[in-house]
Design a protein around this nucleic acid. Structure first.
Length: 320
DNA sequence: AAGAGTAACAACCGCCAGCAA
DNA sequence: ATTGCTGGCGGTTGTTACTCT
């Protein structure tokens, strides 16, 4: 037998996240760290599917995210990495601390593509457009002869870029690429040019490094849920959601001391990494409503949550 | 000022690899 | 070995903001 489905999708909310939903999700992850996403919406009191929660967290709520447009430097990196990796946005994002694959993908499609075209560079091949044009004109008669693809790769857009890469290899003098695509981790490292080394020094944060907790270590807020709903200042405002997130001034995180997330002690240690100042500022910011009035949104100060021990069966059956 | 067109980006959808049951 | 769920990924769509006429 397999596992339970991630969600039944019945009665689940879709569309933009409200400020209240953001608060609930942040509240939950601040308190519990990251655990099984399927359980998050139930435990956090959200009518969302786990996948949606994960996406919202990784793409928007994560504390390490940079906001605003990509800098010229970052843009240059994206272009360079795209030339080497193609549309592997997550891989590209992994070289840009604080940026998400979604953000980079969007930026590529809306900004960089146009920029490159303006500069006469084909955004797919990273070659000059005139050359690409000439190349395709040369190939056209041949392609008409061979309309049936000779290999499955040709049908798969994923391979399109790699095919270009191979072509590029034939004419390295025309490419801005500095290395070839490889899947191995070792060679992935080699993609990092000295330019990227400075980025490595930055305090990179990875969602994988968010403390993972065991089911029986979930902290369940004990305050009545009505306190949350009564404080919901704007259930419709993705705008207000944006505002309160823009205001968040988040500290640098150091997750390096979490060596073994399966160890309960290390999990407790990891929770301590959200230092008091940060928690206070977060509470202050999150508790502010749209008019700037202070409100109690967190059910209780984070350090006052009782640690509720759940047995694994309760967890598995989702009895909350 | 209003409507149309365009840009920007958040969110969703479907697919897939990995893995637990 | 098989089944089917989870989490991650890339492509696409929908919504909002902005600009132009």
């Amino acid at each position: 037998m397999g596992r339970q489905p991630c969600c039944d999708k019945v009665g689940l909310k879709k569309g933009p996240w409200t400020a209240e939903e953001d608060r609930k999700l942040i509240n939950f992850i601040l308190t519990n760290g990251q655990c099984c996403w399927r359980a998050v919406p139930k435990l956090a009191g959200l009518l969302r599917c786990g996948k949606s929660c994960r996406l919202r967290w990784t793409n928007y709520l994560r504390p390490d995210l940079k906001r605003g447009l990509l800098s010229e430097y970052e843009e240059k990196m994206v272009i360079d990495l795209h030339a080497q990796l193609g549309n592997r946005w997550s891989k590209i994002a992994s070289h840009l601390p604080g940026r998400t694959d979604n953000e980079i993908k969007n930026h590529w499609n809306t900004h960089i593509k146009k920029k490159l075209k303006k500069l006469g560079i084909d955004p797919v091949t990273h070659k000059s457009l005139s050359e690409v044009k000439a190349h395709t004109q040369q190939e056209q008669p041949l392609q008409e002869q061979q309309k049936q693809p000779s290999s499955p790769d040709e049908l798969d857009p994923k391979f399109e870029h790699e095919n270009h890469q191979n072509k590029d290899l034939e004419k390295p003098e025309n490419s801005i690429e500095s290395s070839t695509i490889t899947e191995s981790k070792e060679e992935d490292q080699m993609i990092m040019t000295p330019l990227f080394d400075s980025m490595e020094i930055m305090n990179g944060f990875c969602t994988d490094e968010v403390p993972i907790i065991k089911p029986d270590e979930i902290l369940v807020p004990c305050a009545p849920s009505s306190s949350q709903t009564s404080t919901s200042s704007s259930s419709s405002a993705s705008n207000s959601s944006n505002n309160f997130l823009e205001d968040l001034v988040l500290p640098e995180f150091e997750w390096s001391n979490i060596e073994n997330c399966n160890d309960i002690n290390s999990i407790n240690t990891s929770m301590a990494l959200w230092d008091d100042d940060f928690i206070r500022s977060l509470e202050f910011l999150i508790n502010e409503d749209d008019d700037g009035n202070k409100k109690q949104v967190f059910d209780a100060p984070l350090n006052q949550y009782p640690r509720m021990v759940m047995d694994s069966e309760s967890w598995a059956n989702g009895l909350f």
